[in-house]
Amino acid sequence: MSSTSQKHRNFVAEPMGEKPVTELAGIGEVLGKRLVSAGFDKAYVVLGQFLVLKRNQELFQEWMKDTCQANSKQSADCYQCLYDWCQEFL
């Protein structure tokens, strides 16, 4: 990955607070809708799942694929986003 997206940077720049799940890098409207319907309505819920999976990239991407049919690019973006956020704030 050469550079990160603006969305990624925005997310990683500050505590996530009550941000919706669509604020996560790699998650757009469609994936966001699917995640919300699966019960993951806020970014911190996804973060919880991310942490429960012990920041394991493979498992997290697998989970995203299962939950919202994310492709590998999207899930990798999302993983990286959460990972960097954790590096910064956790």
Binding site: Q49, V52, L53, K54, N56, L59, E62, W63, D66, T67
Partner: peptide, 17 residues
């Protein structure tokens, strides 16, 4: 495989794994 918490959201994934 490293131990992971198996919860409602991860069970499916763990089975797959």
């Amino acid at each position: 495989f490293p131990i992971m918490p198996i919860t409602g959201t991860t069970r499916k994934l763990m089975r797959k794994k």
